[in-house]
């Protein structure tokens, strides 16, 4: 039974359609990643889940009701939407006490959360002086405050050090294993690839994909096989076909797109060509993502040669 149900959800800001009749479910017991280029509508969708933004059309329910209709919202959903949704002049502990007081959550729980996220030493310091990472920890503490069964986190690892990133990953997986519903957006594809069991991809406010992470990676057309053989030229000819692309990567190394490794092995056997290596190269989630959203990015950067994991667009 889905916990977050989004149906035909639409949000218009003036002339701009930020979310365009989006429908999907988020299910319990797993981490669901929420991906999309900048401006795709991820944050707006998350804000609509907890009622900060009012949908132009469509609806979103959590545990069967709109968020605002729950008598105990913090116990239903723990949300981290902006890094610092905190009054800068108030201390971290008092900030959490303010939130706890609305639900009658005891102060002992506040102190427990402060210890949990590792802010004990700075709990009585003004939140305005916090680093981005400390602000994220405070945001996570407030999300966990009501012991919610649903977590909605927008870029939770943003600004965290590697230790913090790992801590958040463990936390999300632990929560999911406990049966919680974990819905988390991130622009760090490598992070999502190891954290998310399921991903929802949107572009320009529309749904592009809603599948298990493994399936999304498998479906990426950039999956290829590298083959090492002393008889590269002959194998290249033997593999040629309408949907097959073979490139030479070295004197005895071929890169094959469009054929499964098993099929390549069979062809090589039939042609009596010796193979030294036959290695399927799985596309990364990032590659699958780039491929999926290539037409939907809001802000295209002009082509640049400055390093970074930019994908070779000529192959798309």
């Amino acid at each position: 039974m889905p916990v977050i149900e989004i149906r035909e959800l639409t949000k218009r800001f003036g002339p701009k359609l930020a979310v365009d009749s989006l429908s999907f479910d988020v299910r319990p017991g797993m981490v669901t990643g929420f991906l999309g280029p900048n401006g795709a509508g991820k944050s707006t969708t998350m804000r609509m889940i907890i009622g900060l933004d009012r949908p132009t059309a469509g609806r979103v329910t959590v545990n069967g009701r709109p968020y605002a209709e729950h008598p105990d919202p913090l116990r239903q959903v723990g949300a981290l939407l902006e890094a610092k949704a905190v009054h800068t002049s108030r201390t971290a502990r008092n900030h959490l006490r303010v939130l706890a007081a609305t639900h009658g959550i005891p102060t002992s729980r506040v102190d427990e959360m402060i210890d949990l996220v590792g802010l004990t030493d700075v709990a009585t310091k003004r939140a305005g002086g916090f680093s981005l990472g400390m602000g994220q920890r405070l945001g996570i503490a407030s999300a966990l405050l009501g012991e919610p069964s649903v977590l909605v986190l927008d870029e939770p690892v943003n600004g965290l050090d590697p230790e913090g990133v790992r801590w958040v990953r463990d936390l999300l997986k632990y929560k999911a294993a406990q049966g919680c519903t974990v819905f988390v957006s991130s622009h760090l594809m490598s992070e999502m690839a190891v954290t998310a069991d399921h991903v929802i991809v949107i572009g320009r406010g529309r749904l592009l994909a809603d599948s298990p992470t493994a399936e999304i990676i498998r479906s990426a057309s950039s999956n290829r096989v590298t083959v090492r053989t002393p008889d590269a030229a002959r194998l290249q000819t033997a593999l040629a076909g309408p949907d097959v692309k073979v490139t030479t990567a070295g004197p005895d190394l071929l890169e094959v797109e469009g054929l499964a490794s098993a099929r390549i092995g069979e062809i090589a056997l039939a042609e009596r060509i010796v193979l030294h290596e036959l290695v399927p190269q799985q596309a990364s989630l990032e590659e699958a993502f780039m491929e999926m959203t290539a037409d939907d990015v809001e802000f295209h950067a002009t082509a640049t040669s400055t390093g970074g994991p930019t994908r070779d667009r000529s192959r798309v």
Partner: peptide, 28 residues
């Protein structure tokens, strides 16, 4: 800043405080 990375990052399950809900008095 130290984080409790080594321990399981969630408190031991507590009995659900059933009275946890929003009231006007609590918002005040």
């Amino acid at each position: 800043m130290t984080a409790a990375v080594t321990s399981v990052p969630v408190s031991a399950p507590q009995p659900a405080p059933t009275r946890v809900r929003v009231t006007q008095a609590r918002v005040i």
